[in-house]
Amino acid sequence: MRYGTEGRTRLLFITLIVTALFLITLDLRGVAVLGGARQGVQTILSPFQKAGNFILTPVKNFLTDVTHLGRTRNQIEKLRADNAKLKIDLLNRKSADAQLKQLESILDLAGTAGYRVINAKVISQGSTQSFSQTVTIDIGTNAGIKNNMTVLSQNGIAGVVKDVYPTTALVMLATDPTFKIGVRIAGSQQIGILTGRGSRSASLQLLDNLTTVKVGDVLLARGSVANRPFVPGVPVGYVTAVDNSAGEIAQSGTVRYYTNFGGLGVVAVVLAPSSTNPGDALVPPKPVPTPIPTVTVYVTPSPSPTK
């Protein structure tokens, strides 16, 4: 009896393994049924994700405030003085304001370049268990979103649309290790390829061995054929380190993205590029150092008392 049970378990195990291998083969051969199943599951999940995002936004804001305790101490002290209802109201308002600010910046960016964009809200962070960097946005094919469209943040490139569903879309962030984008250096027009590294910094590889790059150079997207996946002129990041190894054919370097991927709340998907190449019009202005006021104290000796 025991052997019978063991034999049945082994048979079941082997059957399941074969089934899994069968599924992998079907998917790699591009059988549409499996893609449809994934899409169906995503369609079912998206209302839950939207509800989860709505409910958890105050909690997330609270956690963000806790992690930024040093920077927001004054704000937290002020919030402590309020009652519970006002706390929640304030947190919701803060979230809305932050998203509005992001949205304004995105629209400024898109308006300067002449892109036709559609705004979207980030409703879920992708699981990093698969070692990928993705977010889900709340618009999909119903809003005209297609695969391989450029996604902008308030400061520049955020990623590219990877998968589209009727009401949601999966965006591969520029930090994803598989993300690659053709870039050019603003001003000098040298070209190179930027690759994500899983964090806010990325690797730059120049293509021409006769050109040079220096720290502080600003990188813009070169644009793709038919403007997909990348429209030209989008600010990408700036060079933070240059590798001048003698063995390298061309220079390489490290780039810091303009986009803060940890705080992505609102993004914009580029539906159509501008009719003309924006060139270097979107290069962000260099930060102007805030002058530190100098206080000069003149000491005048009091008149000595007359004897």
Binding site: L23, I24, R38, S127
Partner: peptide, 12 residues
């Protein structure tokens, strides 16, 4: 595998 953040093919 049905999760949208699953990186690989269905079945992996």
């Amino acid at each position: 595998d049905m999760s949208q953040s699953a990186g690989g093919p269905v079945g992996q």
